[in-house]
Design a protein around this nucleic acid. Structure first.
Lengths: 311, 311
DNA sequence: GACGGCCCTGCTCATATGAGCAGATGGATA
DNA sequence: TATCCATCTGCTCATATGAGCAGGGCCGTC
């Protein structure tokens, strides 16, 4: 019996049968030290495969790589399920867990909106904070017919944190720059934007450039506007603003008409948490992370690997 | 963070990050004993899944169940691969390993023939014994056109064991009883059968009742003979003899014309090793094992589970 | 509000394990 | 054949771990 086969036997006796290395030595006619060494070999050669099977499992090694190689303050990575079934939920759960455990507990939290953030809000544990102010950081989905809009999302997070939400009563993108300036200078809106600027942490996701974008669905943009953006290099949007692979604004004129915190605010933030999942969003995730728009990344392993590959 | 989630974190830090329970306690703000207890819980609840990934892995727990619940002297169970791809090979390898490690090394080994045993023979390690006599225990496949017949199989096992093969120069089933008696009383044949009776161990497999059986292929039986056997309750054959679910001979007249060791010889043997794999053979495996025709079973996990289910 | 039982916690102590070391083994080379 | 080098082996010792136990808090019950 060669050493590899012996290692398999040792591993079986140790892990399946809960024998001590000493007993194993006795059974297989080898010394207990040899048993220990074979066991180490078995682990090294991948004969022993240890997996943490749980919807809330994480990938600490990948998280560390992200922190070290991309200079992130923190990262949370969950395994990507087969065919991405349920990644959104898993990543949202991880984001909720992260936020709930984040210290110091933010007194003012800036949030954007979207499908992903709605998922996060739903998963925030009740009582995750004691008196948090949740500020909406970009113009909202009031036009959207679906429930679960920016307003309910922010309110949910706030209520569960025993606090209140400060909503931004404005469209995401205005048709004319003058309208945008007018709204912005409205006292209530200005007050909201001011609070948004002083948030202790920002929580946002990102969208990809395609005709199903929430901006199109809500009527802020037309399908051909999006096409044009894509043609000009846009790969996605964060807080309503379309950026290219370098994290730069694609269409400054459009951006001027977009209401909410600026990319500069995010870049300067002490804590900016990007929550993003799925293969479709690898490119936009890369753009956001490499251009320093976030300090914390919460994502699935496939996305994380995509980011790490080219660095 | 509830205990289950905490257990997941502990498991990750322990198994993925190789931290000590003490370090984990420090990281998660719990005592090292709590970390240890959570780890135990995680293992118990199946959050930690440890697998031995190797072509020669075994299922010791199932083996133990077979020994204890079916009264076998020994059992070897290998995992059934997805869609049974390669089970035959895996089980054959396990049989070869078992035989090579069997103590005391048999001086005389009785073998039957067939696809499975050919696979076993090919996998016997060179020098597995020092001077073994391998006796063919049932009539052979001289008519068979394919290579790898009873003769080469027995010779291979013998050569690798630094010994020689004693072949049974006879068809498996004779057309007429008188012919069988005549052959049986031939001095050389009688001598072989005598050696077969005194084997220290028998190694054989089993076939299922269908028109592709080696007996039909070799011309010993016609397709409609097999159909008739099935109609009368036959579920398969071992050492050329067709048995029903209770391990009894189905057609005594046919059996009389079948040349080789009897079922009684197998039942009385100190060591009779059945090598069998695949879902198609679950029934015949059950018949052989429950009727005491073997003392050692070498099989795949699915087959083993099928046997254990109804006991 | 007092009591009793249950579970959980943090401990002690025996055991299991891994790191590191010195001698043994074996194969290649001069 | 003698010698060297590399690997392997069995050891000592420090550390990590698990079993079992006593005390404390929490719950329900009276």
């Amino acid at each position: 019996m060669d050493d590899e086969l012996l290692a398999v036997r040792v591993a079986e006796l140790y892990y399946d049968e809960n024998k001590t290395q000493d007993e194993i030595g006795g059974l297989l006619g080898i010394s207990r030290w040899k048993a220990g060494r074979l066991l180490a070999q078995a682990r090294e050669h991948g004969i022993v495969r240890i997996e943490i099977v749980h919807p809330r499992a994480r990938r600490l090694a990948t998280e560390r790589a992200l922190r070290e190689r991309l200079g992130l303050a923190d990262a949370v990575v969950v395994p990507t399920p087969e065919n991405e079934i349920g990644v959104q939920g898993r990543v949202a759960q991880a984001a909720a867990d992260f936020l709930a455990g984040f210290r110091p507990v933010p007194r003012v939290l800036g949030v954007s909106w979207g499908r992903t953030l709605t998922d996060v809000a739903e998963r925030m544990p009740d009582g995750w904070a004691t008196g948090v102010t949740v500020v909406q950081i970009n113009g909202g989905v009031s036009l959207n017919r679906r429930p679960g809009t920016a307003a309910t999302l922010a309110s949910t997070i706030a209520q569960r944190g025993r606090g209140h939400a400060v909503l931004l009563p404005s469209p995401a993108i205005l048709e004319r720059l003058s309208t945008k300036k007018a709204i912005e200078s409205d006292r209530t809106v200005a007050a909201v934007l001011e609070r948004a600027e002083e948030a202790n942490a920002y929580l946002y996701s990102a969208g990809v450039v395609d005709e199903n974008s929430a901006h199109v669905e809500s009527g802020y943009l037309r399908a051909d506007d999006v096409e044009e953006l894509a043609r000009r290099g846009a790969i996605g949007d964060i807080v309503g603003r379309y950026i290219d692979a370098n994290g730069n604004i694609v269409d400054p004129a459009l951006d001027e008409r977009t209401l909410g915190v600026s990319l500069e605010t995010l870049r300067a933030a002490a804590t900016a948490i990007l929550v993003i999942a799925g293969a479709a969003k690898h490119d936009i995730a890369r753009a956001v992370v490499t251009s320093g728009l976030c300090t914390v990344l919460i994502t699935d392993e496939a996305t994380a690997r995509a980011l790490l590959e080219d660095s």
